[in-house]
Structures are given as structure tokens and as C-alpha cells.
Write a protein that binds this DNA or RNA. Sequence first.
DNA 1: CGATATTCATTGCGCCCGCAACTATATACC
DNA 2: GGTATATAGTTGCGGGCGCAATGAATATCG
Lengths: 162, 162
Amino acid sequence: MAHEIIDDPRITAVGLFNEAYLGLNAKLACQIAQFGLSPIEFEVLLRLGRSPNGQLRMTDLAAQTSLTASGVTRVVDRLERDALVKRTACPSDRRSLYTVITQSGQQKLNAALPEHVRLIEEWFTGRLTTEALDDLLSGLRTVRDAVRPGAEAGVKSAVQVH
Amino acid sequence: MAHEIIDDPRITAVGLFNEAYLGLNAKLACQIAQFGLSPIEFEVLLRLGRSPNGQLRMTDLAAQTSLTASGVTRVVDRLERDALVKRTACPSDRRSLYTVITQSGQQKLNAALPEHVRLIEEWFTGRLTTEALDDLLSGLRTVRDAVRPGAEAGVKSAVQVH
DNA sequence: CGATATTCATTGCGCCCGCAACTATATACC
DNA sequence: GGTATATAGTTGCGGGCGCAATGAATATCG
């Protein structure tokens, strides 16, 4: 009855991956929510905040997040409604729009970040020795590079895997 | 302008965690979809399949997945509509319901599992040396145990972390 | 035993987001 | 230069799921 494959250690490994990921994110989501933001809104703000001029085109946001173009439109809709970002025209391509973080968006981001980092330290990085953390990140990097759905910000040429 | 904290390596680490997790799951979701299942439906089927008698109460399913009770109700609704599970009364507590996997559910699970494991091997476990995999899983386990949202199946007494 | 509190599951409502269709602009090709 | 194709972004629609309210059964406690 395939009673052995259902307990395959590889399935267990993925289960562990899931639990660790979801558990950690639940902790972080809770803190982010205190600033009136959803995790995806926080991520967009973060990516804008670390980009040159605090701006990114909608398409780039879609590539860097787990969202489709449609999803980006709506997240930016919400952030713009709350005056945390604004849309501005792209001079070189009139199809494109820049989403640029506002003063108020930067302030909210700066306000949230210290505690955010503290929580990451508390529930994740601080739980491991330097060496164990390096090992973990190295493994994650290997997996990330394998499954890269676009991966690194700003990457233009994506190698297609068969 | 807090230009340093936004590039804190701990934030980067979480970003890496995200990319690896989402990328891997996208690969797996794609395969699962070929069997007409969403990832959460597959997970429910899997957890039922590895449980004694292929059954679990709604509440247990909620505890083991990332779903609320309401979410479990609806997932089981869909699976039951497709005849992959069925609800049966719990004799000892008439508030509770068992969700039990059907013959047809087992067959679908068995059909999906080999390729599922193969994909995990291809995109995850097979990318790492035995040692690197052990290190990765050990790190994940540490994090999981810290943030445990209920963690191990069947655990009854949950130690509350302040 | 009887009243109160708790637990299991479901449901109405609303948000979020993917898909596919659509508009506008840009690029390619003859 | 003009037509075909590709790309940027938005929108209607529909599905998935959380929250809070509800109903039913059980547990707790005076």
C-alpha cells in the first residue's frame, strides 16, 4: 500500500522546511501587522527602500516578489491609498510606471525595521551558532539557485532550466 | 536614513529563506496540480494517508496544517466533493468529525507520490551532499522547534513559550 | 444537578490574488 | 513606413481562506 514512500525522509524534509518557514513568518507577520501592513506590503516597501531613488517599475516588483503583475497593481493600489508610495511616469517608456516610496513610507519602514530585525534574531539567526547559520544559509542558497524564480534583484538574463 | 539596517544580513537571510522556500514549492505545486490538487489539498491527503486508519479529526488537521478550522472545513468540502475523503462521525465526541481518506483518495495519493519524491530529490535533497543536507535540516529543525506553531503531529501537550 | 464556560465544526462576509481579456505603447520585420 | 508581435499595466471575475458569529455537544464547578 506504498506505506513506505509516504514516510520517505525527503517528504519529511520538505515538511520540516514548511514548518520552519511558516512558523518564522507567522512571528514576523504579527509584528508587521502592528504597523498596519501585510507581509507582502512590507516586502514591497522594503524593496523600494533599498532601491536607487526608492523606486522600481511594476514589472520589477513582480519579478522580485511572489506576485503576478495583477497582484502588484493591487498591492501598490493599497500602498498608494495609504500614501506610502506613489506612481510616477517612466520617461523612457510610457508603458511603464515607477512605484516610488514616499517620505511617509520611508518613515514607516524605518520605524518597523529595528524590531523586525530583532525578531529575526530572536527566532532565527540568534538560535544558531555562526557556523550552523552559515551552513543553513549555504544550503538554502544552493536550493534557491536551483529553483530560482528570477532570484537576485536586478538580474536581467535568466538562464532557462530545460 | 537608516541605509545600513535595510541591508542587514539578517534581513537578507530571511529573504534567502523566502526565495528558497517559495521556489521549491512552486516546483512541487506544479506537479501536484497535474493531479487536480492544490498544495494544501495534497498536504491534507498526505497527512490522512499516514495517519492510523487514514483518519484525523478536523481540529487535528487544523493543528497540523497552516489552516484555521474554517479553512479545514472548506478544504475537506472540496476533497469530499471529489470523493477523495469522507466525513464520518466520531463516536466518543459528537461534536467531532473524522475526515477519512477514501480508496480513491489513497489511489490518487499513491499515484502522485513517486514523482513528488523525485522532484524533491531533483530540486532539493539531491542538490546537497549528505553532510550539507544534514546541516541544513538541523538548522531548520532548530528554527522549527523555536517557532513551533504546534509542530509535531500528534503532540498533545504544547509547551507555551512566553 | 444546573448554570456557565469551553470546544468542534460550519457559515456569512470580505480581502487578497491569479487568470485571462483588454488598452496603450514599443519593437521587429518586410 | 506599415503591419505583426511583444510588453507594461489594469480590470472583471472567481476561488481560497481568515475572522467573527453561530449552533451543537461537552466540560467545569458551585
